[in-house]
Write a protein that binds this DNA or RNA. Structure first.
Lengths: 205, 205
DNA sequence: GCTTAAACCGACCCGCCAGTCGGTCTGCTT
DNA sequence: AAGCAGACCGACTGGCGGGTCGGTTTAAGC
């Protein structure tokens, strides 16, 4: 079973390095040779493990991107506290470079989403499904917040989830080049204002 | 001067059709032949008017995209009323397909922004400058709103502008494929909640 | 009408890059 | 030790698309 280990090892190295470079330069702007050169692997090795560049990226999505989004944006929602501060923290964390988040400025979901839109319907679908999972989890935690009296009763949880996702994706666009540290701070501040407007009024404490 | 007219006419046809197709399929996913075929023009004609594909797109930005953003997002801000409803209206209008807005779902600023990011710094700069103009105008109208007593005094106008832009760009990402009419409605609703939270409290009627 | 320069034509060039394929190396099996 | 399969190599192919260039058409100026 030594062979099997080698296979996993090589595939994993390819996926990890691929994600790293695709994030930096974009999928269509990165040639396989760019990646293979860095890993000192050949075309033959690549096509031995993956049947196409597309297949390769789908592997990357399912093995790496999905996990990352879960870890950063979905799992933190699994508590029974007031959901609004929890959501706020998860977004702040997801926009933070370094730390749990090796890649600069969290995951380039928005970048990939727009890059593949109109270009590759299958990959688009995989990426949209990830967003969908996030959305569903947001909605569910918001609804629980409503029951628990943290969120005003007249609030449309689906609308709130959509709005949070939109603002996060847009923020990622604005941060993409920018070294402007203030942007993230401004975003979090305004999100707090917004959250205050949908919180239940009968705040105790 | 008949020649001069012909030149303008051809260049304009090229730019208009180019923008149309670039929006549908993306810049890098559209070949010049795709555009030239539709207009029944030749490579020779194209390179007689533009020195490169890049030069061509810069023309499109400066002649068409800038005007559109001004018309939809900047000029509406030039009133002396309460800025918040004005901004809300402009965003709603800008997300509306058809009408003043021939292209589906407003301008694909976010799409182009992410497409050119890391690919072409010069074009990225042109696009970011457009956003900057919008931002500056938003900030200025928000500050006036503060003076006029429509917006609470402790509010950070730059932060609000950033947040509005981020949510709009993100919304455009979510709407990109989607025929989901509800998304836009949800967005506008939540924006209203947010605006309420930054409005001055001493509302008179 | 003749000249001249513009607008325009389209075959061609060339670099890039996903994907192929015949071959070599490595280490497990018997 | 032989045989075999899976991991890996790298030169090659083929299509796509931006850009070129010598030539043709059109219309303004005289």
């Amino acid at each position: 079973m030594e062979k099997n280990l080698k296979k996993r090892e090589t595939m994993h190295r390819l996926c990890a390095k691929g994600l790293e470079i695709f994030q930096q330069k974009g999928y269509y702007n990165t040639s396989l040779d760019d990646i293979l050169k860095e890993l000192e692997l050949s075309k033959g090795a690549f096509y031995h493990h993956f049947k196409s560049k597309e297949d390769y990226f789908i592997n990357i999505i399912q093995n790496l991107i999905v996990q990352k989004v879960y870890a950063l944006l979905v799992e933190p929602l699994n508590t029974y506290e007031n959901p609004l501060p929890i959501i706020l923290d998860s977004l702040e964390e997801a926009l933070e470079p370094g730390k749990r988040n090796e890649m600069a400025y969290g995951f380039m979901l928005n970048d990939f989403l727009t890059e593949f839109n109109k270009r590759n319907a299958q990959i688009s679908k995989y990426l949209k499904d990830i967003l969908k999972v996030w959305e569903v989890n947001l909605v569910s935690v918001l609804k629980r917040g409503k029951i628990d009296g943290h969120i005003a009763r007249h609030i449309d949880c689906e609308g709130v989830a959509t709005y949070i996702i939109a603002s996060y994706l847009g923020m990622r666009s604005l941060l993409m080049d920018n070294t402007n540290k203030q942007l993230k701070y401004q975003y979090i501040q305004q999100l707090k204002h917004y959250f205050r407007s949908i919180a239940a009024q009968n705040v105790m404490a």
